[in-house]
Simulated scan of single mutants.
Amino acid sequence: MSLPELLAAAASRARCDGVLLSGGLDSATVAWALTKAGLKPVGFNTQYAPAPGSDVPHLMEVARALRLRVVVSWVGEEEAVKAAEEVVGILKVFNPMEVVNCAAAYVSMRAAAEMGVRRICTGDGGDELFAGYEYMQRMEPRELDEYIRRLAEGRWYFCAFDVGKALGVEVAAPYLDPEVVRYALSVPAEEKVRGGVGKYVVRRQFQGLLPDSVVWRRKDPIEVGSGFSALYDVLARRAEGYSADIPVQGAAKYLYKAFRERGLTYERDKESPCPVCGYKLRDGYCPMCGYYARA
């Protein structure tokens, strides 16, 4: 079976009545798969009103092509910061990248919950399985194949599942369906990255099924597509004057304040501690505060 057929089968099993829709390749293909399965999900997106991101024109093009209803939540600074604080409490980390990205998803899923959506689908897994990230596209083919295989064995994390649970909304990710994962692992790296373009095999198979501007859209992280990247500076400003008991800086400092105000704690590691917060490093990366030891 082709990837579109496998995704449609996975979407049929997921039976989502909502979809997080950025207008990027992964969410668009999932929305397509849901409609192919005979479903009409509502698309949900969040935008930072003071400085909107890049998503809206693309998600509207997907909505027109698939004839879907779309709900865009436009949030101001206070609501965006509040969403970030709520995500700190849900994920129990003060990692700015994780929290800021998930804050946008939180607002979208909260809107879905308020509308009575029971299950929402996401495009999680598409980038990991088909080399959507720039750093993956720089890897040698054999290295990339092995890296993706390790991810698929459980070394990935998607915050949407925890956020959805907190909001009372079931979350499903068709790309994480076992049949789709099995297919992805059978595709060699040379088919996933071609001419410096990631997810090439996905783009090629969906050409003609979705608008070309969506099929060949560059990868924009959630924070960029939603405009929530502006929160890094907002949070950093709000951290001014706060005295933390660890050498955390910028947005992480404000999120650490929110973390502590919620009475949250974490274990320090003795063997491989993060030099900022003391949490256990994983391949030089700290999931708690976002520190990364670059080679």
Score class of each variant (00 low, 15 high):
164 G>T: 02
250 G>Y: 02
153 E>A: 15
212 D>M: 12
61 E>D: 13
258 A>G: 03
5 E>T: 07
191 E>N: 00
197 V>T: 10
291 Y>H: 13
40 K>E: 14
6 L>E: 10
212 D>Y: 14
184 A>R: 02
87 V>Y: 00
155 R>I: 00
170 E>M: 07
71 V>K: 12
107 V>D: 00
182 R>K: 14
6 L>V: 03
142 R>P: 00
194 R>H: 06
19 V>L: 02
265 T>R: 14
230 A>V: 09
182 R>W: 01
88 V>P: 01
187 V>W: 05
108 S>T: 14
204 R>I: 00
96 P>H: 04
177 D>H: 09
120 I>C: 10
71 V>A: 09
140 E>Y: 00
223 E>S: 12
268 R>P: 03
70 V>N: 13
67 R>V: 06
213 S>Y: 10
41 P>M: 08
11 A>R: 11
94 F>R: 01
96 P>C: 02
180 V>D: 04
61 E>M: 13
7 L>R: 05
15 R>Q: 14
214 V>E: 06
17 D>Y: 05
271 E>F: 13
167 L>P: 00
273 P>H: 07
53 G>T: 01
220 D>C: 08
72 V>L: 08
14 A>L: 10
172 A>Y: 07
245 D>I: 13
31 A>L: 14
1 M>L: 13
152 A>N: 04
259 F>G: 03
115 M>N: 13
171 V>S: 04
207 Q>W: 08
47 Q>H: 12
